[in-house]
Simulated assay, not measured.
Amino acid sequence: MRRRLITMLAVLALGGAALALPHAAAADDPGAVYVAIGDSEAAGTGNLPYVDQSCLRSKKSYPMLLAATSGVPVSSSACAGATTTQVATGQLGDLGPATQLVTLTAGVNDLDWQGVLAACSSAGTDLACGAAMNAAAVALQGVPIGIGQLLGAVRTLAPNALIVVTGYPMLFGEVVNSCSVGNYQGVSVKFSSAQAAGVNAGLWQLNSAVQAGVGGYVGQTGDPGVRYVDVVGAFDGHGLCDSGSRWISGLVPGQPVVDRGFHPNAGGQQAYADAIALALASM
């Protein structure tokens, strides 16, 4: 798979992977060949060392891993906390007619997801959890629109690029009774089986919304150069409560490791990179 990925990205870098897209006129700044945009998942937040402290962007993020494997440098603007709107308005500066690959992970910050996790754990209450879930469900309705608008903005600036949009992994595996995820401010935080199932269900809905945004954009534009990559299967057996090695970090006290909480660790970032590499290799 590694050889096929290198070949695929090498072809992209040479402009040989021609898509049925209009060719843009040459510009003073043609853009980077591989551009990564998105939120903390794409930034690799929680995995030291950081190459950009302000965005918690890690040297071990999946775009960096893909770049290292392929030998094609990446220009990443991914930033922790970014919404689809913030990605569209603040992260597209490296795109251009020379851009051949764009990877994107976004959507979770369009919801108050951290608020959901806090409310729907032992640190919250049933009432607070219900309210947080309801608010997230309302916000979720805007995710397909946000993704579609973001894809349109990317395509305008990078008319020749293959755009890969990923979903999110499930946080929890099989929870029989409860799952401890560490402690926050000296208090142990746990999720019951019902709470863990509810969080996973919310992530399934988020992935469906992201995929709907991709499908809606492609359906409206006929754009052949956009792909959705589901990463759920890549994390099977490696959630917070699975018996296998965790590829999602629990809560870790202290600075700067507090950023790790509920984010893919180094193994999880590699799983992201592998899932995208597999998708690229099969195209």
Rank of each mutant, 00 (worst) to 15 (best):
M1S: 14
R2S: 06
R2Q: 13
R4Q: 08
T7A: 13
G15F: 08
L19M: 09
H23L: 10
A24F: 07
A26L: 15
A27L: 06
A27N: 01
A27V: 08
A27P: 00
D28M: 00
P30H: 00
P30F: 05
P30W: 02
I37G: 02
I37Y: 00
I37N: 02
G38M: 10
S40E: 15
E41D: 15
A42L: 01
G44P: 11
T45C: 04
Q53H: 05
Q53T: 09
S54D: 14
L56K: 08
R57S: 14
S58D: 00
K59F: 08
K59S: 14
Y62L: 07
L66Q: 13
A67W: 14
A67G: 13
A68Y: 11
G71I: 05
V72K: 01
P73Q: 10
V74A: 15
A78H: 04
C79F: 09
C79P: 07
G90H: 13
Q91V: 11
G93D: 10
A98L: 02
A98W: 01
Q100R: 15
Q100C: 02
L101G: 14
T105K: 08
A106W: 00
A106G: 02
G107S: 09
G107Y: 15
D110L: 06
D110C: 04
D112S: 11
W113F: 15
G115A: 12
S121K: 04
S121P: 05
S122R: 13
T125W: 11
L127K: 15
G130N: 12
A132E: 06
A132L: 04
A136M: 09
V138A: 13
V138R: 12
Q141D: 03
Q141V: 15
P144G: 05
G146R: 07
G146C: 12
A153F: 00
A153N: 13
T156Q: 15
T156G: 05
L157N: 10
V165T: 06
V165S: 06
G167R: 08
P169N: 12
L171W: 08
L171N: 07
F172H: 05
N177L: 13
S178M: 07
V181W: 03
N183F: 10
Y184F: 10
Q185N: 04
S188N: 11
F191L: 03
F191V: 01
S192Y: 08
S193I: 01
A194M: 01
Q195S: 03
A196Q: 02
G202R: 07
G202M: 12
Q205V: 01
L206Y: 14
S208N: 15
A209Q: 04
A209Y: 09
G219K: 08
Q220M: 12
G222L: 11
P224E: 13
G225R: 10
R227M: 11
R227F: 02
D230E: 08
F235M: 05
F235Y: 12
F235W: 09
F235Q: 04
G237S: 02
H238A: 08
L240T: 11
L240E: 04
C241Y: 14
C241I: 06
D242Y: 12
S243N: 05
S245N: 12
R246H: 15
W247V: 00
L251W: 04
V252N: 07
V252L: 08
P253E: 07
Q255E: 14
Q255G: 05
Q255R: 13
V257N: 10
V258T: 06
V258M: 13
G267Y: 15
Q270A: 15
Y272H: 10
A273N: 09
D274R: 11
D274F: 03
I276G: 04
L278D: 14
L278E: 15
L280Q: 03
S282D: 14
